[in-house]
């Protein structure tokens, strides 16, 4: 397949074909980005899957890391109940999906040979089919996204399955990213490093214009001024820029 001719190759849906409303997807993106904490992002994510994937009436996210399986987020109580049934049994599609990082379908809970106990419990609860997709994060993010369908058998269609896999990737990335405790520091570092250097460059320009010298000489003068005043170079540079921004006379570096 020539991917360049098919935008969206490898992601759900066919370009130009019938698909969910564009505005709805844009809105999904906005909602997702608004999530502040990991819990909020995951919770929002299960709601988005329920809202966009046909046949996903209730959605949950199972995590199977240290301390055993647990439901980290869900779009409704029925999904939580059915997750817990599987945790108690120690067997079920969500656990196998999480373990294998694969898709596990139960197309009809009225007739399922692989998970008879789970299927019976699901049917009693009114759930007719389920679709679980393992998170692709590997051992760093073991878990599964579970889509439960009430009333109708037959789990999600091909489009829904691809969308569910995309959302499962999102959950995995969110989990892995949240695992880095020093990430906040690193973002601050990026911002501070950018601003510091911009201030230094700008102050260099001020000195170049004032003293009709080149960039290297201007930088050297800033360094010399900092040394003479026993102040940090950045402080001196910031003062040079700040004086001009206030509209006052430029202070000697």
């Amino acid at each position: 397949m020539d991917a360049s001719k098919e935008r969206g190759a490898g992601v759900p849906g066919e370009p130009g074909g019938p698909g969910p409303d564009q505005d709805a997807f844009d809105e999904l993106g906005r909602l997702l980005l608004r999530g502040r904490t990991l819990e909020e992002v995951l919770s929002r994510l299960t709601e988005l899957v329920a809202a966009t994937v046909s046949g996903a009436d209730q959605v949950s996210l199972t995590l199977t890391g240290d301390g055993g399986a647990r439901t980290a987020a869900s779009s409704g109580p029925l999904a939580v109940d059915l997750d817990h049934v599987q945790y108690r049994l120690g067997s079920g599609p969500c656990l196998d999906a999480a373990h294998d990082g694969a898709v596990v379908r139960v197309p009809d809970t009225a007739d399922d040979a692989r998970y008879p106990e789970f299927a019976a419990a699901a049917q009693r609860a009114g759930v007719r089919s389920s679709f679980s997709v393992g998170l692709p994060g590997g051992p760093r993010a073991p878990g599964a996204l579970n889509l439960y369908r009430v009333e109708e058998p037959d789990d999600v269609d091909e489009e829904g399955a691809r969308l569910a896999e995309l959302f499962a990737s999102f959950a995995a990335v969110a989990l892995v990213n949240a695992a880095g405790p020093d990430r906040e520091h690193r973002v601050r570092y990026v911002h501070v490093a950018m601003r510091n250097r911009a201030v230094l460059d700008q102050a260099t320009g001020v000195v170049m214009a004032r003293e009709s010298c080149d960039a290297e000489q201007a930088y050297d003068r800033l360094v010399a001024a900092a040394r003479a005043q026993d102040r940090p170079l950045l402080e001196v540079a910031a003062a040079v820029v700040a004086d001009l921004d206030r509209g006052g006379p430029p202070g000697a570096p």
């Binding site: 992601v11 759900p12 849906g13 370009p15 698909g19 969910p20 997807f25 993106g29 691809r162 959302f167």
Partner: peptide, 8 residues
């Protein structure tokens, strides 16, 4: 761009 392109 389609919605799924945006999500991806």
């Amino acid at each position: 761009p389609q919605g799924h392109d945006v999500i991806a």
